[in-house]
Simulated assay, not measured.
Amino acid sequence: MSTVIEPKRVAERARKILETWEADEEFERLRTGCAMYSKDWDDFYGYPIIVDYDAIEDAPALFTETTRVMALKSAMYELTNEDEKAAELPAPVAIDTMSHALCAQFTLLSRVQERTGIRFVHMTDMEAGDQGGTWDWGDFTHQCYRAAFGPVNIRFWVGKDETERRRQVLDGLYAGIGVTERGKKISIDFASV
């Protein structure tokens, strides 16, 4: 990012963006659609790092956290003259995973973007780390979030080191059933089961 943007400035714009999205006539449908996405989403290393994760029960709070982060990204996108790399703020893996569910509501998101004039920003090729696992306490994203929305929901905001520790635990558990390379390879002998 060539221009330094103060977290307070990002926060001010993000709050306005989120208010605009929430006022949109189809925002509630977006929330509902993301909650329903739990039936179709396979994920080995994003949601499972949340202790006692429940796809149905956690969806509302996770959606709130995700739309807040998306508002921060959209604010950065605007404030940096549409710099996609600067706008792809690191996010905790569970929130990054929910952002994929949000983006899967493509037609609906397109209409919201058209009505509000605000772009939803999520570019996987601009993310640092594996599945957004570079977020950490006190970083720029965290500073912007606190300035805009107050304290994070610590259930979903798992820092970089703890995320990796939990992923290593999952590595060991999954390997026993034939899931390796962080879910990228699956070798299960269905004929013998």
Rank of each mutant, 00 (worst) to 15 (best):
Q113W: 03
A147N: 10
A94Q: 09
K160M: 15
L109W: 07
G178Y: 07
R111M: 05
Q143L: 09
F140R: 00
S110A: 15
L173A: 13
D125L: 04
A148I: 06
Q105K: 01
D139Q: 02
G132P: 03
G129S: 14
D171R: 00
V121P: 02
G178S: 14
A147I: 04
M126I: 05
H100N: 03
A101F: 10
T124R: 06
R166V: 07
S110M: 11
A175F: 06
A104S: 12
G178N: 14
R115N: 15
R119T: 12
R146Q: 13
G176N: 15
G133Y: 08
D136T: 07
T134K: 02
V158K: 00
L109R: 01
D139F: 04
G133D: 15
G117L: 02
F156I: 01
Q168H: 07
W137I: 11
S110Q: 13
M126F: 13
H122C: 07
K160N: 15
F140V: 06
G138V: 08
D139L: 00
R155N: 13
D136V: 03
T141A: 14
D96Y: 05
L109V: 04
Y145N: 06
G117M: 04
G132T: 07
E127Y: 11
C103V: 13
I95C: 02
T180H: 10
Q105L: 01
V93S: 07
V169D: 15
I177T: 14
A104P: 01
D171C: 03
C144R: 02
D139P: 01
D96F: 02
G129C: 12
F149D: 11
F106C: 04
R111L: 10
G172Y: 12
F156D: 09
A147C: 10
A148R: 03
V179L: 05
R115G: 12
R165I: 07
G172K: 01
T107N: 08
I95V: 09
I177H: 15
G178L: 06
W135S: 02
G159K: 01
T180P: 05
Q113S: 09
G117T: 09
Q131R: 05
G133C: 08
F156N: 04
G129K: 04
I118G: 04
D125H: 08
I118R: 00
T124P: 10
R146D: 12
A147S: 15
R167H: 09
V169M: 09
N153M: 01
G159F: 10
S110D: 14
R146S: 13
V169Y: 12
E127L: 06
L109P: 01
E164A: 05
T141W: 05
Q143Y: 06
G150I: 03
T97Q: 08
W135V: 03
A175I: 08
M98K: 09
F120K: 03
V93W: 02
L170N: 03
T116D: 15
D96L: 01
G178C: 14
P92H: 02
T180M: 06
G176D: 15
A148G: 06
